[in-house]
Design a protein around this nucleic acid. Structure first.
Lengths: 226, 226
DNA sequence: CCGGAGCATTATCAAATTGTTAACCGAAGC
DNA sequence: GCTTCGGTTAACAATTTGATAATGCTCCGG
């Protein structure tokens, strides 16, 4: 239940890899910025203020480790996640990446699947630690830290999946979420469930909330709108 | 699931694997073409124009990576999905598969179930290629992210086809779109529908919008103009 | 004025999509 | 072990959408 306006900066000097990673991340709903060298990565980090930075170790102008170290010494990036991509079996850089304060690192070559799942994991971790922002929309309050939903002061009990689904939709009011997106965010990227499963959960949410705030966009998906 | 008219090309030099994959894919309703070496894969790709190509890395005449790279350098295959089958633990080819622009890859041996689910996932993503740029023309706002149209603040509900048609026209104001162009963009390149179908949708849009912003160019097509 | 070409409109029907209910299954609690 | 709850699925109902046919309109040339 993430990727509401979550920004990821990807820095790699290989244009192809950059594009594939961008594609994959965007398919998961993240906002993606890219940089093709260390210097650009620093600049973009400052202008974009991403939640997560994926850094290739080997880059022109500044190495990923350089960038990592500089970001970490800046308090503005204190809780920005950094994921390092290290060269094949270059264990030394793993160590040093860690020393410089990366939150995770992956050995190249890396499959897109693995990368995405690590990204998810990192962001989930961050979300838990830092605390996810409660959403307040008119009289409806959705608080992920308490896992609770209140409407006009009344507590409404939602089951886990129901809550996650509602939280996803409400995290970006009026944006349409395709059924695929919903599946991949609430159920996970590779989970296969039946076609009617989403509907049923939507129905339960509508039923329990008692207010009409989830719109069906036929042939497309669902969106939250008060 | 639909998978109507979706074409998949499978290239592998193992006849048994080829047949199993073909069988599974056809059972899912895909149209399947096969090739048993790299050269043949290239030819078939050009003649069949598949939506997705499954490439074995190790093939005679041309390796899968070779084929992948050649296809990617051809603009006609720019948005053709490529799924690479790599030998077990052949990590090097993973990297290179990525560099050459495969959209995903799977390590052999692969279970048919997994293969099918990856294929589904890839095609779903492709299907969802909404251009995410909202269009704002005077008091009319067309937002593909929200799948919504607003005129002077008022939301106007359009059905999917109507929305896509309007979005196409509005994406290039004052440019005339021929009926063929409209058909191939909104309905797809190979869909055959009657002559009056476009008219009917145009009418519905005009009706719902309430403003006269779609001009008929007799004998030619339609254009958007505020 | 007439007739045809091309488009607009409307009604209608089939297909696609979603809503709803009930039943099932497994895991967590009692 | 029994019960409850959440999650999933299946089956069917309800709704919406898209496509077509039929008909009307309008512009034009003859």
């Amino acid at each position: 239940m993430d990727s509401k306006g979550i920004k990821v900066l990807v820095a790699d000097d290989e244009p192809d890899i950059l594009e594939i990673v961008r594609y994959k991340l965007e398919a998961e709903g993240y906002e993606v910025a890219t940089a093709s060298n260390g210097e650009e990565a620093l600049q973009k980090a400052r202008s974009v203020k991403p939640d997560l930075i994926i850094l290739d170790v080997m880059m022109p102008f500044r190495t990923g480790m350089d960038v990592c170290r500089m970001l970490r010494s800046d308090t503005a990036f204190h809780d920005t996640l950094i994921l390092m991509l290290t060269a094949l079996n270059d264990e030394l850089s793993q160590v040093r990446g860690l020393e410089y304060g990366a939150d995770d690192y992956i050995n190249k070559p890396v499959s897109p699947r693995v990368l995405i799942s690590r990204v998810h994991a990192l962001l989930r971790r961050k979300a838990r630690n830092i605390d996810e922002a409660p959403i307040q929309l008119e009289s409806l309050r959705i608080d992920p830290t308490q896992f609770s939903v209140h409407h006009e002061g009344q507590a409404i009990a939602l089951a886990k999946k129901e809550f996650e689904l509602l939280y996803l939709l409400a995290s970006r009011p009026r944006r349409v979420f395709l059924r695929n997106e919903i599946l991949s965010h609430v159920w996970g990227p590779d989970v296969i469930v039946g076609d009617r499963t989403i509907d049923v959960h939507i129905r339960k949410i509508r039923q329990k909330l008692g207010i009409d705030c989830i719109r069906t966009v036929k042939g497309v998906g669902y969106k939250f709108e008060m």
